[in-house]
């Protein structure tokens, strides 16, 4: 059982236990779909949807599931919500769905989601699981947003498809390619660790 306050339960996902920057989980979609802000945002929201609903369901039925089959049950529950998200995107946002391609079905194997079920929802109340999922989701969405903003502005000179850089600017094509994802994420991780170190040493 967690002993944090409700506020801490939420904010830990934003910084101290940020799924990408601190736990280094869910890096595959983080690297793959952050070439454009709209795709990063869609992926973040789809993952959040899956994480929030899986956490609720798992925390409700946690006592019914024998521990021997818990992973299998979690995966079925997660896959259900992933399929819902996939169908929803295909029906209402066909362009985004086409851009994200196989990465939406791949949310099933995103470690953030299974990790939260195993580490948190299976041991805590529904309310706390919901707060935890909301915090983790926000942390994930924000990180994806920062990363995709850097990559889209530098890589294509646009933001959400609108031109933001002047005509003097030559887009750094590498930033929208896979290599750019590693560069941007690496620098972001470095900055996050640096800030963490500074704040810790002050205390």
């Amino acid at each position: 059982m967690s002993t944090r306050s409700i506020g801490q339960e939420f904010t830990k996902g934003l910084w101290n236990e940020n799924p990408v920057l601190r736990q280094l989980l869910g890096l595959c979609p983080t690297l793959a779909v952050t070439g454009w802000v709209i795709n990063g945002l869609a992926m973040g929201l789809a993952t959040s949807f899956v994480l929030i609903f899986s956490s609720i369901v798992v925390s409700i039925i946690k006592k019914l599931i024998p521990s021997q089959v818990r992973i299998a049950s979690y995966i079925v529950i997660i896959a259900t919500f992933v399929t819902v998200a996939d169908r929803f995107l295909a029906a209402y946002f066909p362009d985004i769905s086409k851009d994200l391609g196989p990465y939406v079905p791949l949310i099933v194997v995103n470690c953030i989601i299974l990790g939260r079920q195993e580490a948190f929802s299976s041991k805590n109340s529904v309310g706390r699981s919901l707060i935890d999922a909301l915090g983790m989701s926000s942390g994930f969405v924000l990180t994806l947003l920062v990363l995709s903003s850097i990559r889209e502005i530098l890589g294509s000179g646009t933001y959400l498809g609108h031109q933001v850089m002047g005509s003097w600017f030559t887009p750094w094509i590498i930033m929208i390619l896979p290599a750019g994802a590693f560069l941007a994420l690496g620098i972001l991780l470095g900055i996050a660790l640096h800030i963490e170190k500074k704040t810790k040493s002050r205390i």
Partner: peptide, 20 residues
Amino acid sequence: VLTSVGLLSGSFLATVGILT
């Protein structure tokens, strides 16, 4: 447990599938 989780998921997905 596994059967009911599977059945519930399946029927839920069938509904979503029909709707979309």
